[in-house]
């Protein structure tokens, strides 16, 4: 696979006081941090912590209620075409496997001959070439997720967001997906993923972001984080304790009026 798309990196990504609210509830609270080029980041935390929302805010699928999301390296360029995202449930167009990749490239304005070459290449690399002319929606769930990764890979993004990419996959499919993610990273793409699988976070991440009730409680290199999280809730989470009783909502100042 050739290098990620043209030109200078759009990274680093700055979040400055980012909040997000829906239905009158603040779901992401005052997140400030910087994602540099290089390391693979895993956003971890219990269900409802806001992991997926944080990814969508970074990717620009949703707009923050307050604060700013700035791609500092973009320097006036539109950062969107340099990013891609793979969702927890793969979204398969009602077309063939090949056409699924081709449509994505067409939307990004890639000319037809190059589309064909890139599609063949990613299907080969993800082991989907034998399904090329099958309807995407008859693939198994694991194969659909591989296709979603292949589709994202074909875009040659500088930054790839992965929202629980293996949440409903068995170990074999999880392994296959993780190998593909590694290969995509090897081609120079910055990986930002969410997971609630601590084993996956250990395997796949160089940097851990711990999120709880919409707050970023810790951001640390993976080795340091797993050796001993500074935050008490993160400590409990890593030990496998259930967090819901550790901190009542009334003691969380952010949810107080």
């Amino acid at each position: 696979m050739t290098d990620a798309v043209n030109g200078a990196s759009i990274l680093p990504l700055d979040l400055a006081g980012v909040s997000f609210a829906a239905g009158g509830r603040r779901l992401i609270k005052d997140v400030t941090c910087t994602f540099e080029a290089g390391p693979r980041t895993a956003v971890i935390g219990p269900n409802g912590a806001g992991k997926s929302l944080l990814l969508r805010l970074c990717h620009g699928l949703i707009a923050p209620a307050a604060g700013r999301v700035v791609w500092r390296g973009a320097r006036g360029r539109d950062p969107a075409p340099f990013q891609a995202m793979v969702f927890q449930r793969p979204v398969m167009l009602r077309r063939s496997v090949t056409a699924n990749v081709d449509a994505a490239l067409a939307l990004r304005g890639v000319p037809r001959p190059e589309r064909r070459a890139r599609t063949a290449e990613v299907l080969e690399r993800t082991g989907l070439a034998r399904f090329a002319h099958q309807p995407a929606r008859v693939l198994s769930f694991g194969e659909q997720q591989k296709l979603a990764l292949a589709r994202a890979w074909a875009l040659r993004p500088q930054v790839l967001f992965l929202d629980e990419p293996t949440a409903s996959l068995d170990p074999a499919a999880t392994h296959a997906v993780e190998e593909i993610i590694d290969a995509i990273r090897g081609a120079g793409t910055r990986i930002l993923m969410t997971t609630h699988d601590l084993g996956q976070a250990r395997r796949m991440a160089d940097e851990i972001v711990f999120l709880h009730r919409g707050r970023m409680l810790e951001k640390a290199p993976a080795a340091d984080f797993f050796a001993g999280p500074r935050n008490d809730l993160a400590q409990a989470f890593v030990r496998g304790e259930l967090l819901w009783w550790r901190k009542r909502p009334s003691r969380d100042p952010a949810t107080e009026p």
Binding site: R56, L61, A80, M85, V91, R94, A103, L107
Partner: peptide, 27 residues
């Protein structure tokens, strides 16, 4: 509802999506 996030992620607003959705909904 099913495609929106994926198509937005790929850079397609409602205008670009219209033709794609008509084709995918053909049956």
């Amino acid at each position: 509802a099913e495609y929106e996030e994926q198509l937005k992620s790929l850079g397609a607003g409602p205008g670009r999506a219209l033709g794609m959705l008509l084709w995918d909904g053909r049956f």
